[in-house]
Design a protein around this nucleic acid. Structure first.
Lengths: 123, 123
DNA sequence: CAGCATCCTTGTCGATACTG
DNA sequence: CAGTATCGACAAGGATGCTG
């Protein structure tokens, strides 16, 4: 049992943390946690996400073992993405981030307005 | 009560999510959740973090109301950063990400090795 | 001590076009 | 349908030097 430490720059956990702290990762795992989805279905649900970045993100998630990719030999081909147990263990915490954002956005916006007003007053 | 939705590109929650899903934000709020810290103390504890980025990140966190900055009129000046109630409400979920990373990194590394091996075999 | 200003190298992303 | 390939714009980040 090694002592992993995300505060060390060269620790592998740092790379992992870098991956899971990604806007698209959070949103995608949030969707996949509720059930398998197809490529274009994911693309449609996450507004602002390009096909290229979705492709990259899914590939990374698959490589990290957070998402499973299953291709069906239909014509045209059908691909289904699903969350793995490893990814499921993480999705709860990620969903909490979305919930926090949606619950506290008004406080954040208020804080920003106050901050900007103070800065403007100083200058 | 508005219906905020982080899956919409133009929703303010999307910007907030983008901010909190940042490697440095996660690590810094994780530290500040345990008590106030000075600028250079934070810099020393987070390996790989440059002074410039720390400065930027703290400023954003302060603007968003997640962190409080307090300057003491000493010579030379002393500055203490502390977490706000708003930030504290988030820090638990962020810490969970660090815990997940440190707990599951071996599974991730294993998955990566398997993935890379399969790709190499195909080519 | 706690920053800011500057240069410069990277990589990240959007847009577009094409394929099995 | 589910991608890959390529280009170009842009911004984040590291290195360095300076300051109240």
């Amino acid at each position: 049992m090694k002592a992993w430490n995300a505060y060390a720059a060269d620790c592998p956990t740092r790379f992992a943390l870098d991956r899971i702290t990604d806007k698209w990762t959070v949103l995608l795992l949030g969707l996949l946690a509720d059930g398998p989805q197809r490529f274009n279905a994911l693309l449609r649900q996450v507004s602002g996400l390009s096909q290229k970045v979705l492709s990259q993100t899914l590939k990374r998630l698959e490589r990290d073992g957070l998402v499973h990719r299953k291709a069906f030999a239909t014509v045209p081909v059908t691909v289904e993405y699903s969350i793995t147990p490893l990814g499921a263990a993480l999705s709860g915490s990620l969903k909490a981030l979305i919930v926090w954002a949606e619950s506290n956005i008004e406080s954040v916006l208020t804080a920003q307005a106050r901050y900007d007003a103070e800065k403007a007053a100083t200058v």
